[in-house]
Design a protein around this nucleic acid. Structure first.
Length: 468
RNA sequence: GUCCCCAUCGUCUAGUGGCCUAGGACGCCGGCCUCUCACGCCGGUAACACGGGUUCGACUCCCGUUGGGGACGCCA
């Protein structure tokens, strides 16, 4: 039987990092086993589902490089089918009409909490044999009360629940709409899903869905419940942890390959390898090798991995992102690919994110670097360097060609003339050129900047010194 | 509270009864390289939650305790 998995987000918000991890694991595991990866939008909650959210989820998956092989399917298109299934269950006695009011339900739960029981439906209408009349009612599943239900989870071990722990879940709401567990079971069956990969927060739904399968005589799929992603406080990742849209990570200058690499290493490992390409992951990752404990999202390590991927990336991957980040820094219009291509290598090893890279090469695309970073100016632009700086500007200006050997020659001559060491002159020049005390090599920086700007900025430094 | 799941350095992990005086990675701290910053390289810091078993021998198996997480909706 060929593998069929699905990723089933509900379109009530953006695709956050936890959801992305689930999608990634579904995708990787499916690729490895040459299966089919299906996207299903769980929009049975018409109140909260939006078209925009669907769009954002799709965008997120695309950016992550996790396009589905099939779908997206929409549960809202399957309502008829769900209701038909419920009719069958009703006819077979697997479901029944319940007219309990919300008030009564609340009261029951309240009482159960007080007595220390697990809040659940008390079966009030279970044997009342009500027929669907004008009175408001829901349809509930008649959950078996004896025995237990269990499954061999592909990630966890065997998980078992006593049926007495389960209550009679609602299949159809009083407004006639189907609920989550019903829709999931029907779709997982109809779509031929053979392996359900989802977060372990769904473990308690699994016995309910399995009972639905059994009632309909369907074959139950396999399940793999992956450990959750936690924030630094150890609790399930949520908005207050900055568990924002994956697209936000793009804004922050992360590469999708790095995010995927990092996410995959949370709960999974392959020897002592830390850096993986997407192709490697697709070949190596298997959900059955996942660890069983929750992992804490660690931005520091993500940054390190992102730096690796930036260094390993091709210009084609990086250039558009760099241009975008420069634009966000106010470089308008952003430099062209042709302008950016030659400087890219100088900054690849110096940035952990594309945002950082843009900040570090920004000085190349603005008119003036003034005002200087205060600390750098105070440390390096001292009165003593005014004369050498001035002389250097003159010498550089007189250069017939702007190539490294010539620049270096002029620089070295100036060093000797003023009896200075490399560092004593390079740092002041660096501040004049970039506004900061850190940049690529000083000659490389001058070449990238061009003769005109280089000379201008050194002269501006001299002027600044006179005023200081 | 009830049910379910989990438990090795701060974090991610290796470890499947002797190879472990517990390995790697991030972070942090030193050093090297060096015109600065990175990159790279070298070194250091730091963990088997606790208590009982089982066994000639437990990080590894079993039980309990503690701790953490998740689920308890006419949400998904």
């Amino acid at each position: 039987m060929t593998l069929r998995t699905r990723f089933a987000p509900s379109p009530t918000g953006f695709l956050h990092i936890g959801g992305a991890r689930t999608a990634l694991f579904c995708h990787l595991h499916t690729r490895r086993h040459q299966g089919t990866f299906i996207l299903r939008i769980e929009d049975t909650d018409t109140e909260r589902s939006t078209q925009e959210a669907v769009q954002v989820i799709l965008e997120g998956l695309t950016w992550m490089g996790l396009p589905p092989d099939e779908g997206p399917h929409f549960q809202s298109h399957h309502t008829r089918r769900y209701l038909d299934v419920v009719q069958e269950m009703l006819a077979a006695g697997h479901a029944y009409v319940c007219t309990c009011s919300r008030e009564r339900l609340d009261a029951v739960r309240e009482r159960q909490r007080e007595t220390g029981d697990k809040p659940r439906y008390d079966g009030h209408c279970r044997n009342a044999n009500l027929s669907p009349g004008a009175e408001p009612h829901v349809i509930r599943f008649r959950t078996p009360q004896e025995g237990e239900i269990s499954w061999d989870d592909k990630i966890q071990e065997t998980i078992r629940f006593a049926n007495s722990e389960l209550d009679d879940l609602i299949l159809v709401r009083s407004d006639g709409s189907p609920t989550y567990n019903l829709a999931v079971a029907v779709d997982d069956h109809d779509m031929g899903i053979t392996l359900v990969i989802r977060g372990e927060d769904h473990i308690s739904n699994t016995p309910r869905q399995m009972h639905l399968f059994r009632a309909m005589g369907w074959e139950v799929p396999e399940y793999a419940h992956m450990p959750l992603l936690h924030g630094s406080d150890g609790a399930k990742l949520s908005k207050r942890h900055g568990a924002v849209s994956v697209l936000q990570y793009r804004e922050e200058g992360f590469l999708p390959s790095a995010i995927n690499n990092y996410l995959a290493r949370l709960g999974w490992s392959h020897g002592e390898q830390e850096i993986f390409t997407m192709a490697e992951l697709e070949q190596l990752f298997d959900v059955s090798q996942l660890g069983r404990s929750a992992a804490i999202f660690d931005r520091a390590k993500l940054l390190w991995i992102n730096g690796h991927h930036i260094r390993a990336a091709t210009p084609e991957q990086l250039l558009p992102e760099l241009a975008m980040q420069l634009a966000r820094l106010g470089i308008d219009p952003p430099p062209s690919t042709e302008e950016l291509a030659p400087i890219l290598p100088e900054f690849q090893a110096r940035a952990a994110t594309m945002v950082e890279m843009a900040q570090k090469c920004r000085f190349l695309f603005i008119d003036s670097v003034l005002p200087y970073e205060e600390k750098a100016a105070r440390k390096h632009l001292t009165p003593g360097v005014q004369a050498p700086l001035s002389a250097l500007a003159t010498a550089l200006d007189a250069l017939p060609e702007w190539l490294t050997p010539a620049i270096e020659g002029a620089f070295q001559a100036n060093l000797a003339a003023h009896n200075l060491t490399m560092g004593q002159l390079a740092q002041p020049v660096r501040v004049a050129l970039t506004g900061s005390g850190a940049s690529p090599g000083i000659f490389e920086t001058m070449v990238m900047l061009g003769k005109q700007k280089t000379v201008q900025r050194i002269q501006a430094g001299v002027v600044w010194l006179r005023g200081a």
